[in-house]
Structure formats: C-alpha cells, structure tokens
C-alpha cells in the first residue's frame, strides 16, 4: 500500500513537534517541581543564615558564599588564560601543526569528565602540592575545567570581528596588540562575556570535581586555603545522606534559579552579538 506522501509529511511534522515540546516540557517540569517543593522553605533568611546540625536546620549562607568564591576565583584564573589562548590562535599565528596541537589539547580537555578532574585535582593540588581541601584547590581545578569553554567562545567571538576593522587599525599605525585591545576585543566583548557566563554556570553547578578538591566543610571559608562547600555540594550531601529533603529542595531552588538566570543572561548577550553582525 502506498501512503500519500503529504499525509506522511503532516504526520511527521506533528510527531517532531511533539518531541520538541516534550523535551522543553521536561525542562519546565524539572524547574516546576523544584520551585513548588522548594519555595516554601526558601526565604531571604534561608539564604542569609548559617546552617545548623549539618544543614538539617538553618540556612545556606556559607554555601552561597562558597559558590560565589569558587566561581569568581576560577573565572579570574581562567579568563586571562583562555582569552590569551584565543587571541594567540586568532591574531598571532596562522593555522599550523602547532595550532592543531593546541586545538587538540583544548578539545581533549573539553571531553574529559568532571570526575577525572576531581581525581586529578585531588592528587595534584590537594595531595602533591599540599594545598589540602581548599578553596584554592577547587578553584584551580575548576579553572582547567572551564578553560575550553572560554577559549572556544572567545575564539568564535574574535573570529566574527570583520577583518577590515583590523586592516584599518593597522593602517592608522596601530601595533598588533593595540589593534587587538582597542578594536578586536571591544567588538568581541559580548561573545567573550557569554563564554564567561556559561563558565560561571558550569562552576556553580559542578559537584564531582569540587567535592574532592574543595572539600565539604560547612564553615565560611576565611582564606584561600580553607575548605568550603558550594551549593551544589551542599545539595548533594543533603539529598544523598537524607539529611533534610525540605532543605535540599530549597537549596536546589536557589541553585537552579541562579544557574538559569546566568544562562539566560548569557544567551541574551549572545543574541545581541548576532543581531549586531547580521
């Protein structure tokens, strides 16, 4: 029997449409569950007070601060490295065997699972370099982990800057570095910013690599060498050890809302770039 192709076409269209909305539906359901279950225990005082009794009572202030410290430090380390690499690859060299090797390194780093980063950070920073479970160990591990994201997004943003702008800058007597700083980077800034924000999101949501390098102390880290706990780690421990489902949901709410906010902001920034160049 031969089915009318138009009929098949309409059927497939509806089926694919269904799949797309089902997938978006998953996101909506996840956020909805977290929101409904978490909102009753989530308040300003929950965010601003210290936990008591392993997190069974009280708030998550140290975990929020631990998250902020970890994300901020990793960005501070990774941005110069990543942006520098992207500038080197796009402005200071031609495609060669060398760039192929560097790109291979970046791609490989991007594919390594977070637990391997955890293993590495644990043996290298925590044990061999004697940094112990600390904010610094965690931040350095996260730095390596988010580096590929920053390199890739920066490289793409820099490549999108029209070549003519560089030519003009050179013709006006600018050196390569002056051209890069004054013309290329300002035009690429939104794209670079997108990469940075996506990386922040990654650092905020990461657990496996953080728990073995930064540890899980519930105190507010007072120095780089102090252990601390991020929201994701706190949430994992609350849920896994069955300490408190209410607090776990509330923590998840803060966690998910911050990550969604960061990601939406990143997406919005990127769209502005696309609008600018097309």
């Amino acid at each position: 029997m031969r089915v009318n192709p138009r009929f098949t076409d309409a059927l497939v269209r509806h089926f694919l449409n269904l799949q797309a909305y089902f997938t978006v539906g998953l996101l909506v359901v996840i956020v909805f569950i977290i929101f409904i279950k978490g909102i009753s225990n989530c308040s300003l005082s929950f965010m601003l007070t210290y936990p008591e009794d392993m997190g069974r009572h009280g708030g998550i202030f140290p975990a929020i601060m631990g998250t902020v410290f970890l994300a901020a430090l990793s960005i501070v380390f990774a941005t110069p490295l990543g942006l520098g690499t992207a500038i080197y690859l796009t402005e200071y060299t031609r495609e060669s065997r060398l760039t192929t090797i560097i790109r291979f390194g970046v791609e490989s780093l991007a594919g390594i699972p977070s637990i391997i980063y955890g293993l590495f950070g644990f043996i290298f920073f925590v044990i061999k370099l004697g940094m112990g479970w600390s904010l610094l160990s965690g931040a350095l591990t996260m730095t390596i982990m988010i580096l590929p994201t920053i390199i890739r997004t920066s490289e793409e943003a820099i490549k999108a800057v029209p070549r003519n702008l560089r030519i003009v800058s050179h013709s006006l007597g600018a050196t390569k570095w002056e051209t890069t700083v004054k013309v290329v980077l300002p035009s690429a800034a939104p794209g670079i910013l997108t990469g940075i924000m996506l990386s922040i999101g990654r650092a905020v949501g990461e657990t496996a690599a953080v728990i073995f390098t930064m540890g899980s102390s519930l105190r507010l880290p007072a120095s780089l060498m102090d252990s601390g706990r991020t929201m994701a780690v706190h949430f994992y421990i609350l849920a896994r050890e069955g300490i408190s489902m209410e607090k776990a949901y509330a923590t998840a709410l803060v966690l998910v809302v911050s990550i969604l906010a960061i990601n939406i902001l990143a997406y919005y920034t990127m769209n502005r770039v696309i609008a600018k160049y097309s």
Partner: peptide, 9 residues
Amino acid sequence: LLAGIPSVV
C-alpha cells in the same frame, strides 16, 4: 537550558 541544570539535580 537543559544543559545548565546541574547533574545533582
């Protein structure tokens, strides 16, 4: 955004 949801969640 699905990629942004942490794996622990």
